[in-house]
Nucleic acid binder design. Structure first.
Lengths: 348, 348
DNA sequence: AGTAGCTTCTGAATCGATACAGCACTGAAT
DNA sequence: ATTCAGTGCTGTATCGATTCAGAAGCTACT
């Protein structure tokens, strides 16, 4: 077996506490003794205090959990998520804190178990939808929590960093409406659990996922302002946040008669999928959301939100909690980025 | 304070062990009693067994460490690393294992401390260079270890999954040499700790980082075969693995007289940087390494290696250790992918 | 009735460290 | 000579669970 603190203590002939101090509180013992202890430890092959035992005793772990409420590989598939994670990592690095990426099983009970078993001091949840049960599990554990969206069920201790989804969405939609588009489709990932393609949604406020709800509502606002009411707008459901899913969702309406002249997507990745599906057909205006790297290359009109900064702030909110809880809610600025994927309505 | 197992036990009037069993070994007690216990736990707000305490007692954690031997954000900046990580995540997900991303400080002592403090059952090290001290720290802890390259100092328990770097490099270089290029430059990240630009390296085998060494040697092999000896080859040093670093490293020789007709980079990201720097100037052949997504768009000739598969296998090697240690060394296939970035030598 | 065989539950030991009060000793101030 | 403050180290309690041998209770069979 690996030697423990006790073994080192015995070898040197001091108490366990003294060996512990040699590692964690060098000022508590003479340099000579400390050297002697460290030396004996090396000789015995003692690898230093066991992290688990230390955490138990100390009451904290030195790691924060990062949750993506969909399969873990989503985190690495979506460029926006990757940059968010990079931001979180930067701040964690500064604090000597590790990041625990917890894969969440789809099954709710198992997802809860995964959260319950995570040895962390707090959670940073990258919200992509319906994660109440996960947030509940975190709150039950009494751990601090940062989400990337304001939540209807936010607890008093919850902190968040996000954008004004509705206003941001309104800004692109107003741009598209301003170009004259009146026959439009909105595209989002899992508006409802339904197959890809058009979907009937009585009201944008009925979308269950807060982010999607906010964006759809913002889109609706802008079109309502130019006289296009909700029922006249097509809602497209994508089954996943990927180019392929975006393409699949939009395909049926593109090939139908009376296709929309503009598609507003709730993410760049979906929007790129629309461009893929539309192919060389010009005249279709497409907008995205987030402004990921690929958007610029594709000339995609979109709404920029600061990805890394969002991650940095989320981590900071967790690791350097604001004295005043009121400062725990951060709203980030967004910018409308107009590129070539949107243009005037083509004359029939 | 949060209630503990004991509190729940007291509330129900059973022993601590029984409550523990209710959570971890449902078959050890009657369904009725279990329900009663879980119910009381809910009422008291007991969040379930403490992960840290559980790990301590059980002797394992349920998480594996993933190390990138450079700043953590590197992991999210390099597309190849991201895909590798995604692969690791897939397998971890299957095993209900979490991923601990440990930021490694540049300072060696602090890096060692970071490794020592990580509560994990094993490490998966994404090698990008000079990480002996980190590997040493892991071995001292007696934890299983998977690297992405065979290491000169590999311990008996070390496992790895990688490619034949030298042969792979030889394949692109042979392609470039076959096109007639004789005045060539090789580009790698941190060949030596030196400023960006040309570098004197007596022999490709002198490069300290195993991966770089393997690739440079392979490049050299192919050119030696057509009569171009090592001293005639320019080695370019990049200070980082990024487009910008690649561009900066190549700039001086492009603007010099007698520029190379081909640049062979040790990563796609660097190669893309070379294309950036070369701008519209045609005639310069450029090759990369890895075949990341952007390579295809840029028409970059490169060597493909299976990124996600590498990650999956690395995780599998850690989580499902092969019975025979000899099976712990995996060599993956590579493919030469010829695109438009390489072509014949332009006539003066 | 006695005992064998189950199932269900208990108690004590254990995992490997940290925190804290307190003890012994030293040197300086009174 | 006596008190006082300051070092440097020790001993014990504690963190919150899991494990395992074995007790208790119950059925069933001879």
């Amino acid at each position: 077996m690996k030697p423990t603190l006790q073994d080192v203590a015995d070898a040197v002939g001091v108490s366990r506490s003294t060996v512990s101090n040699a590692y964690s509180r060098p000022d508590q013992l003479s340099a000579a003794l400390r050297a002697k202890i460290l030396d004996a430890a090396r000789r015995l092959g003692y690898p230093g205090p066991d992290p688990t035992a230390r955490s138990l005793r100390r009451g904290f772990v030195g790691a924060i959990g990062v949750l993506f409420t969909s399969e873990l590989s989503y985190a690495f598939t979506d460029p926006f998520a990757v940059r968010f994670l990079a931001g979180v990592g930067q701040v964690a690095e500064r604090h000597g804190t590790s990041l625990l990426l917890v894969p969440l099983p789809a099954d709710r009970d198992r997802a809860r178990a995964a959260v319950d078993n995570a040895a962390v001091d707090g959670f940073c949840v990258y919200c992509v939808g319906d994660e109440e049960h996960v947030l509940g599990a975190i709150r039950d554990r009494g751990l601090p929590l940062v989400t990337t969206a304001p939540r209807p069920d936010a607890g008093p201790a919850d902190r968040f960093v996000g954008i004004d989804e509705r206003a941001a969405a309104r800004s692109v939609a107003a741009h598209v409406a301003g170009l004259g588009h009146r026959r439009v489709a909105l595209l989002a990932d899992t508006v409802l659990p339904a197959p890809p393609g058009p979907l009937r949604l009585a009201d944008p406020g009925d979308a269950p996922h807060p982010t999607t709800r906010g964006r759809l509502t913002g889109f609706a606002d802008a079109f309502a302002a130019v006289g296009v009411d909700w029922p006249a707008i097509t809602v497209l459901n994508a089954t996943g946040n990927s180019r392929a899913a975006g393409a699949a969702a939009v395909a049926p309406v593109l090939s139908g008669d009376d296709p929309p002249t503009a598609v507003l997507a709730c993410s760049d990745v979906l929007a790129l999928g629309v461009l893929d599906a539309a192919g060389p057909r010009r005249g279709l205006s497409v907008s995205g959301f987030d402004d990921v790297a690929e958007a610029a290359d594709a000339g995609l009109t979109t709404v920029r939100q600061p990805a890394e900064e969002k991650g940095r702030l989320a981590a900071a909110l967790l690791l350097e909690p604001p004295a005043d809880p009121a400062d725990g809610h951060l709203l980030l600025p967004t910018d409308l980025v107009v590129r070539t994927s949107t243009g005037p309505v083509p004359r029939s």
